[in-house]
Each structure stands twice: as structure tokens, then as C-alpha cells.
């Protein structure tokens, strides 16, 4: 995409090209080194998660775990009922958040893209500004309001809280996708007997699949890693997501760092995996848009 460099006619003399290649190679090497340094925390998390309880406290520390062990994963992740319950709760909350967000944001983004609405600017501004609101500013009043509604310590309460910030974000991301759906396609669908709803569901949605997947993944990951709402609205152990369980874990005396890092790695895994997929979709969406216009 950005490979458009000096056009052939304006090619600099041969020496310049050679020098350019050299600087480029050095830039690539510097880029790799800096990235490696930047990811040391991630590396250290994985290394620690593969160590035994004794070797974690070796001074100086082993930079590679020799021999590596999966014992922390077996022990802390799959052998610990609290962790397992936390992971389950997180999955329930994240899936619920994803579905509710899609249910609300998909039609809204479509409506904001395709209908001429009075107050469009106000709604778009609202969706944008709302994303800047600190979670703690919502978590505290929500605790008070939810207390009187019986929503504290419930999946529903946590899902609603997560959606409060996920829906505006989703609408903001999705609207541009629906804007690129040509009006003629929608018109053609209506000529063929579709109404507003079916032309949205059968025509606009399939065309916008990359956007839908992107938003689904972002909503899921947001809820999966969410901490503030969970801390304020889930005081009962039965409902607490993994983020809270993990935080409690560290408050115990004598932290078992290898176990902690193993659980952290498991929490990070879906995020990193989904991120790899998400990248592909973003790239696909961009190239599709570029080739089809």
C-alpha cells in the first residue's frame, strides 16, 4: 500500500539506491531490536509461567526456563476451582456483552448510516463523547442504582455495565462499514420485495461482515479484560470474573509468581489469538474496499 516510492523517471543515481538499501536494512534491524525489548514483559510472563516454584526465586534468574515445566498450568489453571470458575464467569459475561452489543449497535449503526435523521449529529456526538467517560464514574452510581434493582452480583448487571461503553464504541466502528454499502444495492433489494428490516439483515449485514466480526471481537475482548465494573458490581465470589480472581490471587501473602503468570498467560491468550484474527480482518476490509472501488 505504502510502497509507492520515487517514480522510475526520478530515480536517484545508483549510489543513492545503494545507500537507501543500507539505511533500510539498519532500520529493519533497529525495528526488530526495539520490538524485542518492548515485548520483554510478555516474554517474562511466559518464561515465568514455565518455571517450577523453586526456580522462580533463583538469583540471578534463569532467562530461559531449564527445564521448562507446564506444572503451573496444570496446577493453577486447571487444578484450581476458583480460577476455573473465574474463567467461566468471564466467558459468560463476555459472550453476553458481545450479543447484547451487536443486538443494539448493528441496527443503530445501520440506521445512523442509511437514514436521513434529524439530530444525527447529536447522536453521533453522544456516541463519541460517551466513550471518554471514566469507568469509575459509571461504576459508582451503577452500584447504587443496581443495588436497588437487585442487579449487583448478577451476570445481567455486569453485562449491562460492560455494554454501556461497548455499544457506543461499536456504533462508532460500524457506521463507516454501513456507509460504504451502496444505496443502489439497498434500493434493488427493496424492489425485490425487501422491507427496511430484511434489506438490512439480508443485504447490508452480509456485505459488512468484516465490520461485524471486528466489533464482536472488540466487545468480547473488552468484557473479557474488564476490571472496574467487575470490582464494583461483583462482590460475591460466585459471580466474579477471572480479572477479579486474578487480582485477589496477588493479594495473598507469598505470591506464587509462576502460577500467577500461568493464569495471566491464559487470560491473555484469547486476546492475543483474537487480535491476530482481527488484524487479518482489518487488512481484508481495507484491501476489499480498495479493490472494489
Amino acid at each position: 500500500m505504502s510502497a509507492k516510492r520515487i517514480p522510475a523517471g526520478a530515480a536517484p543515481p545508483a549510489r543513492g539506491i545503494h545507500r537507501d538499501h543500507v539505511t533500510r536494512r539498519w532500520l529493519a534491524i533497529a525495528g526488530v531490536v526495539v520490538t524485542a525489548v518492548y515485548l520483554v514483559p510478555v516474554y517474562w510472563m511466559l518464561v515465568t509461567s514455565l518455571k517450577t516454584g523453586d526456580s522462580v526465586f533463583r538469583v540471578p534468574p534463569d532467562l530461559i526456563p531449564l527445564p521448562p515445566t507446564i506444572e503451573p498450568y496444570v496446577h493453577a489453571v486447571f487444578g484450581d476451582a476458583d480460577i476455573a470458575r473465574g474463567l467461566t464467569n468471564s466467558a459468560i459475561i463476555a459472550v453476553g456483552t458481545t450479543f447484547l452489543t451487536l443486538a443494539l449497535a448493528l441496527p443503530a449503526a445501520y440506521g445512523l448510516a442509511k437514514f436521513r435523521l434529524r439530530g444525527l449529529g447529536v447522536v453521533l456526538m453522544l456516541m463519541l463523547v460517551v466513550q471518554m467517560v471514566p469507568s469509575i464514574n459509571l461504576a459508582l452510581p451503577m452500584f447504587v442504582l443496581f443495588s436497588s434493582m437487585g442487579l449487583v452480583n448478577s451476570y445481567a448487571g455486569l453485562i449491562i455495565a460492560n455494554c454501556a461503553l461497548a455499544v457506543p464504541l461499536a456504533v462508532t466502528i460500524l457506521r463507516p462499514y454501513f456507509l460504504t454499502v451502496p444505496a443502489e444495492v439497498i434500493e434493488a433489494a427493496k424492489v425485490d420485495g425487501c422491507n427496511e428490516l430484511t434489506s438490512f439483515a439480508r443485504v447490508a449485514l452480509p456485505i459488512s461482515t468484516p465490520g461485524v466480526i471486528t466489533v464482536a471481537v472488540i466487545s468480547f475482548l473488552g468484557a473479557w479484560g474488564e476490571f472496574v465494573f467487575a470490582l464494583s458490581l461483583a462482590t460475591s465470589e460466585h459471580i466474579q470474573p477471572i480479572t477479579i480472581v486474578l487480582a485477589e490471587f496477588t493479594n495473598q501473602v507469598g505470591i506464587r509468581w509462576n502460577d500467577l503468570m500461568a493464569v495471566s498467560a491464559v487470560v491473555a491468550l484469547p486476546v492475543i489469538a483474537a487480535f491476530v484474527l482481527l488484524q487479518r480482518y482489518i487488512v481484508a476490509g481495507l484491501t476489499d474496499g480498495a479493490t472494489k472501488t
Binding site: A28, G31, V32, T35, Y38, L39, V40, P41, V42, W44, M45, T48, L221, W224, G225, F227, I242, T243, L246, A247, T250, W257, L260, M261, S264, V267, A268, V271, I272, F275, V276, Q279
Partner: peptide, 27 residues
């Protein structure tokens, strides 16, 4: 490989805060 490096660096951004905060405490 530039885009790969960018994507790798972005991992730091998408990591759940609980994870990164704990890793920093350990570091």
C-alpha cells in the same frame, strides 16, 4: 516485516490490564 513488528508492539496495548499490571509487579 514492518507490519508484523507493528502488530507485535500492539500486543502491549490489547493485553488486559490485570495481566500487564501483574507482569509489571513481577518485573
Amino acid at each position: 516485516g514492518r507490519n508484523v513488528l507493528r502488530a507485535l508492539i500492539l500486543i502491549a496495548w490489547v493485553l488486559p490490564t490485570v495481566v500487564s499490571a501483574n507482569v509489571w509487579r513481577w518485573l
